[in-house]
C-alpha cells in the first residue's frame, strides 16, 4: 500500500530518463523509408546535355552517390568543396540531382565552384525530388551495386561524416557481391 504512493515518482523518473535521451536526438531528422529499397526510377534530361537523358539505370553495377543540390541552396555551398575534393580522389562516383533550379544558374554555379558530378539530372519541377523523398536540400544517398539505397545524409555533409560514415560504408559496399 505504501508503495503505491511512490508510483508517481517512478513514472516521473522514467520520463526524465527519456527526456534526457531525447535531448541527444535531432528532432528535425526524418529517416528515409527508402533505406534497403531500390532507388526510385527516373529518366530526365541531364543538366549539361538537355537532349540526353540520365536514368536511374546508372546506379546499377557500381557503388555510387546521389547528391541533391541546387544553386539557390545555401548549405549546398557549404558542402560543395568537400564533394569536389571527394570527386578528385575518385573513390566513389557522384551523381547530382539538380533540384528545382534554373539551368543557367546551375551551370554557372558549377563553372564557378567546380563540378564534382559525373552527371547531374535536371529536376526542374522537383518531381524526382518528391519520388526520392527529398525534403531538405542538400541530401546525399549512398546506393549499392544492385541499385539499392543503403544510407541517406540529410543536410550538408561534413568532413567527419564523409570520413567516419560515408567512406567506410562505400568500402564495405564495394566488398559486397554485385
Amino acid at each position: 500500500m505504501r508503495l503505491t504512493f511512490l508510483i508517481p515518482l517512478v513514472v516521473f523518473v522514467l520520463m526524465v530518463v527519456l527526456l534526457g535521451v531525447g535531448l541527444t536526438l535531432n528532432p528535425r531528422e526524418v529517416p528515409s523509408p527508402f533505406i534497403g529499397k531500390p532507388a526510385p526510377a527516373f529518366s530526365v534530361p541531364q543538366l549539361h546535355a538537355p537532349d540526353e537523358a540520365l536514368t536511374s539505370e546508372v546506379f546499377r553495377g557500381q557503388v555510387s552517390l546521389l547528391n541533391v543540390w541546387a544553386s539557390w541552396c545555401v548549405s549546398c555551398r557549404q558542402e560543395h568543396p568537400l564533394l569536389v575534393e571527394l570527386a578528385k580522389t575518385d573513390r566513389v562516383p557522384i551523381y547530382g540531382l539538380n533540384y528545382k533550379d534554373e539551368r543557367n544558374a546551375a551551370l554557372e554555379w558549377l563553372a564557378r565552384l567546380g563540378n564534382p558530378y559525373r552527371s547531374s539530372a535536371f529536376d526542374a519541377d522537383g518531381r524526382i525530388g518528391i519520388d526520392w523523398g527529398v525534403y531538405g536540400v542538400p541530401e546525399t544517398f549512398v546506393i549499392d551495386r544492385k541499385g539499392i539505397i543503403r544510407h541517406k545524409f540529410t543536410g550538408p555533409l561534413t568532413r567527419e561524416a564523409i570520413d567516419d560514415i560515408l567512406l567506410p560504408l562505400v568500402q564495405q559496399l564495394k566488398g559486397e557481391p554485385g
Binding site: 526524418v30 528515409s32 523509408p33 527508402f34 518528391i130 519520388d131 526520392w132 523523398g133 525534403y135
Partner: peptide
C-alpha cells in the same frame, strides 16, 4: 506520401 517520407 508515406512511401516517400515515412509515417512521419
Amino acid at each position: 506520401l508515406v512511401e516517400r517520407y515515412g509515417d512521419f
